[in-house]
Amino acid sequence: MKHTLIHLNTSPYSSLACKEGLDLALVLATFEQPVDLCLSGAALALLSDAQQPTAEHGKNLHKLLAGLEFYDIENVYIEKNHSWLNSTTSWQGVTPLDSTEWQTMFSQYQQVFRF
């Protein structure tokens, strides 16, 4: 069984990439495949609590985060020191990594898919 990392790097509302990356993570977990998530770049906006997307924006993907634990997706990594990410207004389930940990993380998985 391969351990998979899904790396989200695109804005949750500028395209379907973020949603379809999350869909793949949920399917992998449904099939009992070990899967972790990591977020960088514009995908970090997914963590912000204050989201009220309209139908034109797309589904509220932030709401999916609370359900990840029910799929046994326990590790959601971000890189430390994103000053605009206020700890009181963003999702608390992430594990921040320093730069060295972040860089070594990618080589710890058998496969990494980017969205």
Binding site: M1, K2, T4, D23, L24, V27, L28, F31, Q33, Q111, F113, R114
Partner: peptide, 16 residues
């Protein structure tokens, strides 16, 4: 996507 999961588990390497 279950077909992709099956491919992952039966192939040496998957390339995106």
């Amino acid at each position: 996507l279950g077909t992709l999961v099956d491919l992952m588990n039966t192939t040496n390497k998957i390339i995106q």
